[in-house]
Amino acid sequence: MKIAIPCVQPSASALVDDRFGRCAYFAFYDEETQQTTFVENPAAQSNEGAGPAAAQFVVSQGAEAVAARQLGPKVTSLLQSLSVRFIELNEADLTIDRVIGLF
């Protein structure tokens, strides 16, 4: 399974970004290969609708799950309808490698 995680910097030691739609980068962690890639979030600078645009982006990148602090109502229902799992991160100030360590 491929998991998308919003983060503030493109590095494994970076913190999870509290925002989903306007996060700076997405970390894509592939459970099978155990590889992590970082991609800039193209939706971050949207005037409006950053959440749905970011959701569309991560799904187009093949993500089957999203691990994030919180999601807005629009994003939640979009991801649900696409059968993308939401993994809620309940702890503050997690780094990307700690999140990956959870899988």
Partner: peptide
């Protein structure tokens, strides 16, 4: 669309 008002995915089609 400049407002992200169209949600579009080629695969899966949506």
């Amino acid at each position: 669309c400049s407002y992200n008002a169209i949600f579009f995915l080629r695969e899966p089609r949506r």
